[in-house]
Design a protein around this nucleic acid. Structure first.
Ligand SMILES: [Zn+2]
Ligand SMILES: [Zn+2]
Ligand SMILES: [Zn+2]
Ligand SMILES: [Zn+2]
Lengths: 139, 139
DNA sequence: ACAGTTAATGAAAAAATATGTCAATAAAAA
DNA sequence: TTTTTATTGACATATTTTTTCATTAACTGT
């Protein structure tokens, strides 16, 4: 998602792509490992962007599908730039680097579970964790 | 996990299975969809169990592996009783009834992702949602 | 460019969530 | 029973998130 495209999307729905919103978006684009709100606030405070705006913008981008959060086993919440739609995250437990993996086929599994439980399975929330190539080397 | 077994586990490690701890555990057993701390506090306030104890007991049970927290896409934190080890929940989006499904085989998918990303995939969080038999009938 | 209109921001307050302290209490051990 | 130890709950404190509202900035039409 380029800055221009994002601007267009904001404008389409009568919203303004302000300098603050652009800065928040940029920050997440520049940090593929994702950031907590606290981290984002610390960085963006230097640019005089308020915490309130960060909370609001994160929520905006999240609702639009361009930011999503992951949680590591320790329970930390971090937000990551992402594409809208059904995707999953693969997160490194060591360095928190994350990549998106949009292909998943759980249909066979979902059918199995549907048969066993008699539920209608409509979807899933899935997140992978492991070690990125770098961290595997250094461990 | 029966109450007796849990009591034995607490005692084994020199801890006491008090009435408060039992009440907290019971509450989560009775709510398979899980509860937020706030919900648990509201219910257990009637039995004069303090918020502090609830936080502490939830942490205890979590450390022991009998309670785990789920952080769904809506951002809600809920704790739910579970067995230690690897399981998943299948939750009805209508009535919140949930069943545990411990069998999952994502090995093929994990291998595919590992090849594509060069990550070492160690595990996953997975939660299914859909409709339970009852709700399917009445919709 | 200018005035009118609407949306967004930021500072502060308020609310919600989580943790720490410590005297009183309850359970187990002696 | 008496002593010892773990646990609880009231309260204080800290952290995180949301709300409020006056000010500021961005768009609109002229
Ligand atoms: Zn890594
Ligand atoms: Zn999927
Ligand atoms: Zn149902
Ligand atoms: Zn699994």
């Amino acid at each position: 998602m380029s800055t221009e495209e994002l601007k267009a999307l904001f404008n389409q729905s009568g919203q303004r792509f302000t300098a603050q919103r652009e800065a928040v978006w940029q920050l997440f684009v520049e940090h593929p490992r994702g950031l907590t709100i606290a981290q984002a606030t610390t960085v963006l405070a230097e640019r005089k962007i308020s915490q309130t705006t960060i909370y609001r913008t994160v929520k905006n981008l999240q609702d639009m599908g361009y930011l999503r959060w992951v949680h590591n086993p320790e329970g930390e919440h971090r937000y990551l730039a992402t594409r809208p739609g059904h995707t999953h995250m693969l997160v490194c437990r060591q360095c928190d680097r994350a990549v998106e993996c949009s292909d998943c086929d759980l249909s066979v599994l979902e059918q199995l579970i549907a048969r066993k439980t008699d539920f209608t399975v409509e979807g899933h929330y899935l997140e992978f964790y492991g070690l990125c190539p770098n961290c595997r080397k250094t461990l």
